[in-house]
Amino acid sequence: MKEEIIIAGFGGQGVLSMGKILAYSGLMDNKEVTWMPSYGPEQRGGTANVTVILSDERISSPVLDTYDIVVALNQQSLDKFSPRVKKGGILIFDTSGIHKLPTRDDINIFPIKAMEATLEIGHPKAYNMVVMGALLEAMPYKLPMENVIKGLKKSLPERHHALIPLNQQAIEKGRTLL
């Protein structure tokens, strides 16, 4: 098993923390993991992305050319990373704000209405967990939900543990969006 994933969007969308929760969930499922962020001032407003690799084997490069799964949360990220999905791989993107759709026919494309779903839940900060739900549902490697919950606990500071049920609800909502 090996999943090479990039999550890309605007800074502030929770891209890095979604990657972190995914990485922790993999860790809880006894996988090898790497989490490699873009870092710097672009975190505050510009684009942000994070490469997460989950694997049974020791991971060589934390930096990749192509990905099994691309999660794109704005037009820029969609344009940049959709050509870099491996053949037969998965592209998930939020349709909100997207005016130019991907055209590849050799990959599995999942447009999701994550922003709308988040507004339905009524917690804008849970946006990244809605996207995470869609990712978990689409990913061939089935990460057990109990380990995702453990991952949430590990990656969130304890003062935010009261929010875990909300996050769980958002993930479940996201799973229905594919």
């Binding site: 090898e32 790497t34 490699m36 934390p62």
Partner: peptide, 10 residues
């Protein structure tokens, strides 16, 4: 380097 400094691993 910045990669090893910034990346998370087990």
């Amino acid at each position: 380097d910045g990669i090893v400094g910034q990346m998370m691993e087990k």
